[in-house]
């Protein structure tokens, strides 16, 4: 069973996550939860498969340093934050977070994101997709026009079927595009233990050729 530790200072949020995880198929076990990042380091949280991490633990700004330490320790971190600005999202992805979910997306996407993180797949929720698709920083990865299109349409409609219909492609092609984008972002991001696992998984699934790397 997938185990998860939740770092969030809001008890209602924790309760919500517990409920969603219990209803998941197969169910996900929330091993610990608390307002401090310490719960992710100490057992039972220390050995959880996935860390759900609220960026805004205090008012001093996003907890990038905590995120970095978790990533460097090889943890799969799903950032789950109220912040929706592009800069924060892209910074977390650069640091090496597994994915970034906004609080509004929790109900639809959190369980799927946890499952993907546990199996070292990829998961790009719509808001993150929008942030990728409008990324204009100089060090951004180079995206193909079709990839950018998929990112933005996914951001707009939140339904891969609709995106497929709109662009006249198959749903699996939509997923394929999103995975390639995620890989490209992994390539420009920091060196992190999770990256090797991600690449290995993408090659294994046949989304990426070894030659491309």
């Amino acid at each position: 069973m997938i185990s998860v530790v939740v770092v969030d200072d809001h008890s209602v949020v924790i309760a919500g996550i517990r409920a969603w995880c219990a209803l998941a198929d197969p169910p996900i076990k929330v091993v610990d939860a608390g307002p401090s990042v310490a719960v992710a380091w100490l057992d039972p949280g220390g050995s959880a498969d996935v860390v759900v991490f609220d960026m805004q633990l205090d008012r001093t700004g996003p907890a990038y340093a905590d995120l970095k330490r978790l990533v460097d320790a090889g943890r799969q971190v799903v950032v789950y934050s109220g912040r929706t600005d592009r800069e924060t999202m892209l910074t977390c992805m650069d640091i090496g977070a597994f994915t970034y979910l906004t609080k509004a997306e929790g109900e639809e996407h959190l369980v799927a994101a946890i499952q993907a993180a546990a199996t070292h797949g990829t998961y790009t929720p719509p808001m993150l997709s929008g942030a990728f698709g409008t990324d204009d920083r100089p060090n951004r990865p180079t995206l193909a026009p079709r990839e950018k299109e998929v990112l933005l349409e996914w951001f707009h409609c939140e339904s891969k079927e609709m995106v497929a219909k709109r662009l006249g492609i198959t749903a699996s092609r939509v997923n394929h595009c999103l995975e390639r984008v995620r890989l490209k972002y992994a390539k420009v991001g920091r060196e992190a233990p999770t990256k090797a696992a991600l690449v290995a998984r993408l090659i294994q699934d046949g989304h990426v050729d070894v030659d491309e790397l």
Binding site: A104, G130, A131, G133, F155
Partner: peptide, 8 residues
């Protein structure tokens, strides 16, 4: 209504 906007 859930509203989001990105880009310049």
């Amino acid at each position: 209504v859930s509203f989001a906007e990105y880009g310049n």
